[in-house]
């Protein structure tokens, strides 16, 4: 678990968010996130009274959350608090696990209930992409990794695929590093490059939302900072929801933060407020490193 010193070291005069400072281990810097954004955010995802069960065990209790369009929202909380579960509910990846059920509540994206009867999870996942904790490039070439999503949708035109490969790799800040070896295996890349390849693969199908499940937990600090830079770029086009164990990361790259504990949403606010001025004592205890 990440150690974070109590509030005295929290400063509002943070490093500019485009250049995340080399991650200092014992301080949380909070960029003036929402202030930097122009315009008022609109709600894209609306979670209402959401109860979720693994078999008989309830994992999420009455979650109410409105996630903003084209913003970065971070889910934080100790292990087993339900943040990853909620994330996986957003593209119905939990459907694939035996015994899961939703007893109450709904999740809607653009006012469509994604658990509605006529919703096709396949169509949903085309629009809500996901990047996993353990980078999982397919044991195919970089080019095939990127074009995988399009190929299964039936795109075959070479020029179109080439174009998407370049665009996606540029989008994931990986183009310059791999442009000369597009047809080599994606597994030959370093850990950080592999994770950015997975991000590139996700943005290749042009989703609206990108879910990131602890995308940097297996990466070294330099690779982590590259992914974080990337997140800042990506939020211009995509709505990003990131689950993280690193509070510095939540602080550095998110606009809003939701704190979960024991399957309940404890607090949800601007990232700045969560870290600088949490309303709930449990949140305060967690972000200051007193538990979890």
């Amino acid at each position: 678990m990440v150690t974070v010193t109590p509030s005295p070291s929290l400063t509002s005069t943070a490093a500019p968010m485009e250049t995340p400072a080399a991650p200092t281990k014992f301080s949380v810097t909070v960029p003036p996130a929402s202030a930097a954004k122009s315009g008022v955010a609109t709600t894209l995802i609306n979670i209402e009274n959401f109860d979720f069960y693994y078999g008989a065990k309830q994992a999420l209790f009455d979650i109410n959350l409105k996630l903003d369009d084209k913003r970065v929202t971070a889910f934080i909380g100790p292990s087993g608090c339900g943040k990853s579960t909620l994330l996986r509910c957003l593209n119905r990846m939990n459907d694939l696990i035996d015994g899961t059920s939703i007893k109450r509540g709904s999740i809607s994206i653009r006012d469509v209930d994604i658990y509605g009867r006529d919703v096709d999870a396949i169509e949903l996942r085309k629009r809500v992409g996901m990047v996993f904790q353990k980078s999982n490039p397919f044991p195919k070439s970089i080019y095939e990794n990127i074009t995988y999503g399009l190929r299964i949708q039936g795109v075959k035109t070479k020029s179109r695929l080439d174009e998407v490969v370049e665009k996606s790799l540029r989008g994931a800040a990986l183009w310059d590093e791999v442009k000369d070896r597009l047809h080599e295996s994606g597994l030959g890349l370093s850990g950080g490059q592999q994770q950015r390849l997975c991000i590139a693969r996700t943005i290749a199908v042009e989703p609206e939302v990108i879910l990131m499940d602890e995308p940097c937990s297996a990466l070294d600090p330099i690779a982590t900072s590259k992914v974080e830079e990337l997140i800042h770029e990506l939020k211009k086009q995509f709505t990003i929801i990131i689950v993280t164990h690193s509070m510095q990361q939540a602080a550095r790259c998110s606009d809003k933060t939701a704190f979960f504990y024991m399957g309940k949403l404890i607090e949800y606010d601007d990232t700045r407020n969560i870290f600088m001025n949490p309303a709930n004592p449990q949140t305060e205890a967690y972000v200051s490193g007193r538990f979890g």
Binding site: N91, M93, L96, I122, E123, R125, K126, G129, M130, F132, K134, N136, P137, F138, P139, Y148, G149, R151, I152, Q153, C198, R201, T202, V205
Partner: peptide, 27 residues
């Protein structure tokens, strides 16, 4: 075959059979 290959493919909007055919069976 690692579960990550299946998840990664499904998360891109592939159907189960597409996933198995192109991302599980060959391995």
């Amino acid at each position: 075959v690692p579960k990550g290959f299946r998840d990664g493919s499904l998360a891109l909007g592939a159907t189960k059979w597409q996933t198995i055919r192109s991302n599980v069976l060959p391995y």
